[in-house]
Amino acid sequence: MNVEHERALRLRALVPEAAVEVPWRTHGILLRIVLFGLTLAGVAALYFLIDERGLITGAITIAIAEYLINARRWWWTGIEEALWIGGVFAAITDLPESGTPEALLVLAAAAAIPGFRMRNPVFGAVAAGFVVAYFEKKWDLGVLAALVLATIAVFALLRTWRRFSTEWLWIALALTLPLVGRFYADEVWRNVTIILYGAFGALALFLAIRKRHHALFFSGALGIAIAGIEVGRLLAAPLELKLAATGACLLLGAWLTARSLRGRTTGIVATPSSLTTFDDELELAATAALPREEFDQKMESGGEFGGAGATGKY
């Protein structure tokens, strides 16, 4: 899909009544995810059906993917993406196992190649995750690698990109890599972790306010949140106090921000808007899942007591 087609696709989503023609068959995100899952299950079945011959599986699925792309003009339907990444990962199972850190770079390439071909930001983020894992395994520098790559992504988001798939790659990196790096944060390096994440969060938030980009806000918030969690571990205060202080700060901060933006119609505003078409549904689903997540805590008296759903057992 060339630049003009990508831009036309986004324009069609933004202004449906403009009836912009895009010569590709594409799907919305939900259908794409479902088709991706079904196709990936099919690729796995094919792999086991032909006695785990990865190269043959890869050759078949990538050939089908390329046929769908070139002959049928399918792009971002979820099917050809699953065929590509499933095929490449199947193919690398035929490589001899080395057990060395460099094997992680092979996995990174296995995600990056389909990511580049399909212009899929999630595959790109997976590839970057493997690169971070490589730095961790090789030099114990996972946190630093994650934050360096995330910082590059944050600065890349300041540039104007013609393709929105490129923009989404940087967004995916800026949002996932701080989280990936968190898994490699060692206790002995806690103070360094706090400084690095705090600095990254502050930088991303500063740029977010200057450049007005949602991904920068969320990336900065992630950095600050991870630094805050690590600071919390240094403090001897009771957990409930730390949670209450965090919750109160978030709620109060949001309230003060909303209050200060009331009535504004230009610049940074607080008028209703959404990031996805499913914002409300996601929020309701998360709220409905809360009871089991947050409140199923054993009572000292021997029972359980519930929270939002109040699941109780005594």
């Binding site: 806000f217 119609t265 230009t266």
Partner: peptide, 8 residues
């Protein structure tokens, strides 16, 4: 015009 509604 940039809404921080989702962040809030």
């Amino acid at each position: 015009v940039f809404s921080v509604y989702p962040e809030l």
